[in-house]
Computed example of a mutant assay.
Amino acid sequence: MTLSPSPWPAGVPGWADMVVTELAPTQRFYGGLLGWQFVVGGPETGGYVTATLDGCAVAGLAVADVPSPAGWCVYLATDDVSATTARAVEAGATVVMGPTTELDLGRRAVLIDPTGATVGLWESGRQTGWEVTDVPGAFVWAEQMSHDPAAARRFYTALFGYEQQDMSAPDFTYTSLGIGGSPAAGVGGYGHGAGDVPAAWTWYVAVEEADAIAPLVASLGGEVVSGPEDTPYGRVLLVRGPAGEVLALVEQPDDATA
């Protein structure tokens, strides 16, 4: 388990949030599936909702009247969101929002990377991002998948100087991106059967038992996309929430949950 009162190192995924038009179905889904509770911010925050686990922040929800493409936005930590955004633009990104100052909480930007995936940048102020990781109901991993993983690797390494470890296999392209000798995130390529699936970041949340979680998904208003299936890193279940967003759930091996 990791508790983080300090800012996450630059380049490490530090937060995820999502815009929804209806809050209640999303709260019911994640509350029932992952045990999240929800704290609604004051008017100064626009009613931003923080999902918590045992009092620790694990994700965010914003409510908008105008529908927008559903999906979780993964934020990579940065020490200087303005400088990182400028590098991103030079490397081929498009700015969707920001950089903006969010009260005293921090500063953020949202970009479209050169492969078409949405990604956020977060410079911590009073809010560092998720406050607990690597426990059931909390973040454990994030990865970007696209049809051009080489372009994605070049882009993100230009932003954060990641160390790269090739983990590819026949018909499978994947690179672990590291900071200071520790894995931070992954970049992979879609297989031949993926068709026109758009590039996207996906974050993984730990669960105690993937097979026990799977039957709950439909009853809570979601849909099982794939799995549960065994992988070298745990038993993985891909689900779609009530707003159409996709989330990966992973039952980690016993030796990975220390």
Rank of each mutant, 00 (worst) to 15 (best):
G234N: 07
P7C: 05
V207G: 02
H192L: 01
P67C: 13
P149R: 13
G32L: 08
P9N: 10
V132M: 09
G32D: 04
S6G: 03
P25A: 09
A142W: 06
T26L: 12
E223Y: 06
R153C: 14
G120Q: 01
T94F: 03
S68F: 10
Q27M: 11
G14K: 01
V224K: 06
E209K: 06
A142M: 03
V205K: 15
W201S: 02
L216V: 10
G186L: 06
A194K: 14
T202Y: 11
V132G: 03
L3W: 15
G71L: 06
G234S: 11
W15P: 02
I213D: 01
S146R: 13
D113M: 02
V225R: 10
G227C: 07
T115Q: 02
A86D: 08
P198H: 05
A184T: 06
T231P: 00
G120V: 02
Y204F: 15
A51N: 05
A206Y: 03
G98C: 14
D148A: 11
A77L: 11
C56I: 13
P149E: 09
E223K: 10
G60Y: 09
A24M: 07
L177Y: 15
V74Q: 10
G125T: 11
T26I: 10
T157P: 00
G41L: 02
A214F: 05
G116W: 11
G31A: 08
I213L: 14
A10S: 14
L3Y: 15
D211L: 01
C56V: 12
A16C: 06
G227P: 10
R240I: 10
R107Q: 06
L34H: 05
E22V: 06
G92C: 13
